[in-house]
Design a protein around this nucleic acid. Structure first.
Length: 227
DNA sequence: GCATTAACCACAG
DNA sequence: CTGTGGTTAATGC
């Protein structure tokens, strides 16, 4: 289970982990375990005892909360990234769930080990803070998108996000169902279907079921701004 | 009033 | 799981 040298030689080291010294890396190797995940696997679930910090090496996940009426997708994220810091660091129970939407590789890191690094290695802690700050700013933008744009604008935002941030490509396969995309951008699956069909008709995207090609990004950006 | 937007419902692939 | 049509409610000229 504990393959020595695994962390030291890891190609996906986070910017924080790069700042650990040799002794700390040894400690990490003894308190961290990597697993492979299939699409749809739960990494951690809302409501259960939280116990690990997750380092998602690669793959795409959704962070989601079971709301009063329906599931809400809070965020889509791609590795390499830490998951669960907000819900594990100072919370007894998970406040949200993380589920893969593609196959992924994740390392489960003992929370006490992670805390020791934060407490004893300022540079490590600094990198973690930077990542948390980025996350918060991103959520502020998401908040604006949700409240101040119409459905077309929100879906345009989502398409640009998948293209630019997740797949770095104008062609990609949506990892979400229409219903999930609706949960992500605060609308219904019907509206998602309709709006994607409109974009396709307007030749802004090419659409075949989940495969999407962005043809006119400028146009999408305009829709994002003006609805 | 009239137009627009989007949710809800129903039904068919 | 999707796409589409009809209906309805809210909102803003």
């Amino acid at each position: 289970m504990f393959d020595n040298q695994k962390c030291k030689k890891c190609q996906f080291k986070s910017s924080a982990t790069k700042l650990l010294n040799n002794e700390e890396l040894n400690k990490l190797e003894q308190n961290c375990s990597e697993i492979e995940l299939k699409k749809g696997d739960t990494i951690f679930r809302q409501g259960i005892l939280s116990s690990n910090i997750i380092f998602l090496k690669k793959g795409v996940v959704k962070l989601h909360i079971e709301g009063q009426y329906k599931e809400q997708i809070i965020k889509i994220a791609k590795g390499p990234i830490y998951l669960g810091i907000p819900t594990t660091f100072d919370e007894k129970y998970n406040r949200y769930s993380a589920t893969t939407v593609e196959k992924a590789n994740a390392c489960f890191i003992n929370i006490e080990t992670f805390k020791q690094f934060v407490q004893n290695n300022g540079k490590f802690a600094y990198e973690i803070i930077v990542e948390l700050c980025r996350n918060e700013i991103n959520l502020f933008h998401k908040c604006i998108s949700r409240t101040q744009k119409n459905a077309r604008g929100r879906i345009a935002d989502a398409l640009i996000f998948f293209s630019d941030e997740i797949y770095n490509n104008t062609i990609f396969k949506l990892p979400l169902t229409r219903n999930e995309l609706g949960n992500y951008v605060d609308t219904t699956r019907e509206s998602v279907s309709r709006i994607l069909a409109e974009f396709s008709k307007e030749k802004i995207i090419r659409l075949k079921s989940k495969k999407i090609e962005i043809l006119k990004k400028k146009q999408l950006e305009l829709i994002s701004r003006t609805g």
